[in-house]
Design a binder for these strands. Sequence first.
DNA 1: CACTTGACCTGTCCGC
DNA 2: TGCGGACAGGTCAAGT
Length: 277
Amino acid sequence: MPELPEVETIVRTLAQELPGKKIESVSFDWEKSYPDHRQSKALVEGQSILEVRRRAKMIFIVLSSGVALHIHLKMTGQLVLKDPMQETFPFPNKTTRIIFELSDGWSLFFNDVRKFGWVRILPLAELTESSTFAHLGPEPLSRQFTTKGFTQALKKHPKTNIKALLLSQKAVVGLGNIYTDEALFLAGILPDRPVSGLQPEEIKKLFRAIRRVLRTSLDMGGSTRRDYRNARGELGHYLDQAFVYGRTGEPCRRCQTPIRKIRVAARGTHFCPHCQK
DNA sequence: CACTTGACCTGTCCGC
DNA sequence: TGCGGACAGGTCAAGT
């Protein structure tokens, strides 16, 4: 799916455009994409949008009724906003699962080819309750993410390989398959190394690599492998200059050694056999 | 308990 | 050209 840079890019646009607008009506054509629709009709339709937020890869659209639309895009989900001035617009299309009709002629489309993503209803009390997302690690671009905390978190899972741990969201959130491979390249660490074997200096390098790769991707509008679009329907460009992801057989940008692809944590995993130890 | 695998879905690509 | 199988940005529950 969209990983942190993609979700954050979407949230920034929605946070700019949605507050103050009202959700007039909701329609959907795949029940599992909108599983709470029965209980929630009155909590959503006719309500004003107060705020849009992100935690990990989840999006929250806070409504005046005291609930939030709780959204996860999983692998191929999209949230695309249409303003009434746009005459030709590629959505809705056959992947559109939910349509939110907004005030002033705006529409918000939830599209998802593979149907793994969803929009649920979360009472605000649960959104603010600290236990709700207690299983998740810190936000990588926040002050809560520190080398000390990261080191402590890694110590709890010594036998896991570093790629699996980064994907687990336990030590830090927001990384998926693309940015895990990229961050491990920047840190010079092989993806199948057990956490217990990492030296303090390597953990520090990894900490910095995670923040660097996520910031760089944010600047480039995220990654579009195939399906990702931002809230205005545009592509992300990080992959144009990725170090290893999607570059199997191509020369390493640092040492020219061909990039290799293996399976780690049941995921396709790209790395440079020379730069990563 | 810690870690790995299968399931949820559709579409695309590759080899025969 | 058609067909089967592997694979794709995520995350749980179920299995070992």
